[in-house]
Design a protein around this nucleic acid. Structure first.
Lengths: 137, 137
DNA sequence: TATAGAGTTTCCCATCATGGGAAGGTCAAT
DNA sequence: ATTGACCTTCCCATGATGGGAAACTCTATA
């Protein structure tokens, strides 16, 4: 199977398949006489694993760790869970951060007339800094 | 005021101040005879504005737009609100995406023994794809 | 069989915002 | 005069991805 087929079978772009090979996430596959990469169904399986991990927000590095555990049939599920749990923590930290931004912005947007006049609490906040609207509600 | 002072007064690193200048987000300041950049309190004010906008998750491009509106005393607050509202939407989309990941991962982690045995639903999900655990609860 | 079009290869560049670090110039205090 | 802290410019790196060029290969069709 050529890289194009492996790509459509796995959902990973050909570009990224080559990239994953270049950083050592996947092994270099065999080549045809004409230097084309040749993949088998195991490779596609691995690529799908990677795709799924990336979709769940794992970094490439975390994905490498998960791949390693996947291949290690003597792994302890606790090790996998630890990777997942840490990732959940990272995601939740990020979510909280974004929610903080949204909270502030919504408050400011609510206070902004959104009309033709220039007066705007959003710009006032940006100009004055994070504490300017404390106690205003 | 030297760049170092402007940096500590604004919370923007000297490196970033130079970068913002290079991309045209801020204007090039005057220079001393010895080629040092010289900033005034207006510049610090602008840098703080930028810092605050970045802290609220606006991209540099969005920040440029906000700066422009800030300087335009005849702006319509609706224009500012539009920028903010669009950013809120982007943030909420991102949050929903991350929450989806967390939801899936928490479910998988809950189903994982987290012990010494290799059996692990997290890896099974990664290997089998997004639909493998449908209807399992 | 020749040619066209699609697929593949490697290589370089760009993104976005930020930091690291080198080499060299400048300033202020001892 | 020396030292240490500051400034300057320039290049490089990040993470994950895409774009594109130049050259090669394969397959189908005319």
């Amino acid at each position: 199977m050529n890289i194009g087929e492996a790509s459509s079978a796995s959902g990973v772009s050909a570009k990224m398949i080559r990239y994953y090979e270049s950083i050592g996430l996947i092994e270099a596959p065999g080549r045809t006489q004409s230097n084309y990469r040749v993949y088998g169904s195991d490779d596609v399986h691995t690529l799908r694993f990677i795709k799924r991990a990336r979709t769940l927000g794992f970094s490439v590095e975390e994905t490498a760790k998960l791949l390693e555990l996947w291949r290690d049939k003597t792994r302890a599920s606790a090790d996998v869970k630890a990777v997942a749990t840490q990732h959940i923590d990272e995601l939740e930290t990020k979510i909280a951060e974004l929610q903080g931004m949204v909270r502030t912005l919504k408050h400011l947007a609510d206070c902004c007339g959104g009309n033709d006049r220039p007066n705007c609490p959003i710009l006032e906040d940006l100009a004055a800094g994070p504490n300017s609207h404390k106690g205003h509600h």
